[in-house]
């Protein structure tokens, strides 16, 4: 499979707002983080949710964000982090 990103890559979550089922939290859209893990290739929940069981698999990554990047008024220390699993089609390489 594609597996476009490597651990340590800087990635941005697409700023998109599809009306249907998806598993990319609203709060991380448009935010930039770092790939910390490739989880494997999985079917797309945006297809599975609508009965498409045989869609293509694609890479899922764990992406780490600084909490202060996600929440402008975050009141904890600057080293606090948030890790999110994100499907590849939601990610854009930051240096691309």
């Amino acid at each position: 499979m594609s597996n476009r990103f490597a651990i340590g890559d800087s990635v941005r979550v697409r700023t998109a707002f599809p009306a249907g089922h998806c598993r990319t939290p609203f709060y991380c859209r448009g935010k930039t983080g770092t790939v910390t893990r490739y989880c494997g290739d999985f079917r797309n929940p945006e297809e599975l949710a609508y009965g498409v069981y045989d869609g293509a698999r694609s890479a899922v990554y764990r992406v780490r964000f600084a909490q202060t990047d996600l929440w402008p008024d975050y009141d904890g220390p600057a080293h606090d982090k948030c890790d999110i699993e994100i499907y590849e089609h939601w990610l854009v390489g930051e240096d691309a």
Binding site: P25, C39, F42, G76, H79, K81, C82, D83
Partner: peptide, 14 residues
């Protein structure tokens, strides 16, 4: 505050 707090949002397949 000297400890890094890491929150994991369980969004997908793990």
């Amino acid at each position: 505050h000297e400890v890094e707090l890491r929150v994991h949002d369980s969004t997908a397949d793990m």
